[in-house]
Design a protein around this nucleic acid. Sequence first.
DNA 1: ACATATTCCTGGGGGC
DNA 2: TGCCCCCAGGAATATG
Length: 284
Amino acid sequence: MPELPEVETVVRTLRPHLVGKQIVAVSHLDWPSTVQPMPPDLFREAVRGATVAAVSRRAKYILIGLQGGGSLVGHLRMTGQLVYHATPTTPGRFTRLVLDLDDGGQLHFDDMRKFGRLRYVAADERLEDALPDLGPEPLAENFTAADFSQLVSAKLARRANPVLKAILLDQSFLSGLGNIYADEALHLSGLHPLRTLRSLDEQESGRLYVAIRQVLNDSLTNNGTSFSDYRDGLGNKGSNQDFLHVYHRTGQPCHVCGTPVEKVVVGGRSTHFCPQCQPAAAGG
DNA sequence: ACATATTCCTGGGGGC
DNA sequence: TGCCCCCAGGAATATG
């Protein structure tokens, strides 16, 4: 599942191959929902002739800025892959969209499950209006422990008290974490996923902040987690799946204490934790 | 405000 | 071998 480190890796690997290139045609588009809400014909028309000015990331969104101010806003969801091919390549079984570039290369959007999107946002539309409400970037240099603590306080001040797993998945609270890194961050910080936000003391909040940044940075170093479908912008796997501590390790020994990893469902999401390293709050 | 269910999708795994 | 069922899950949406 592409989360912040995976999307950032895609952006970094695509950028040198896309910036300055002109999109000469949309040569394949077999799933209209991929470019919704714009009808496929209008998408082809809007994108044809555009030149890529920049490739960046906001939360789990891939932003391809175009000269003239338009943008392509991509989200890989579960199984999406945005891959640059240096030479024309026959669309695969799961290729939903192909952009032909003026260097003879192509940008393929492959997506088995069809949840991914690559939307065109016109120059006269505000990019922030095209994106949902998104919390801070956890890896931003100016995002400090104090900022995180403030974020928690603000949430609590609104009479909210979600469980930790749920709040870490809430993109409007903090952006970029998904199921893998939420579980990994809670394990690294020694916090049970069903602890509530209000139950955190200052030290635990600090540990969680450090752990979030640690698991994301570690995964970036490993080019992301290729647990199943994730590939970078050149089609290569990451290696962070070899270093996960709890995610998808149900029943296997905790790397820290040897206790079998447990799995529960929180908010409809499978949640993995070590009952020894991540004790439940006293009293339940 | 939060929890839960539903929708979108399809490959793959478990059960028989 | 081959069904059927159900699961995986990010995010939007609806309902309690």
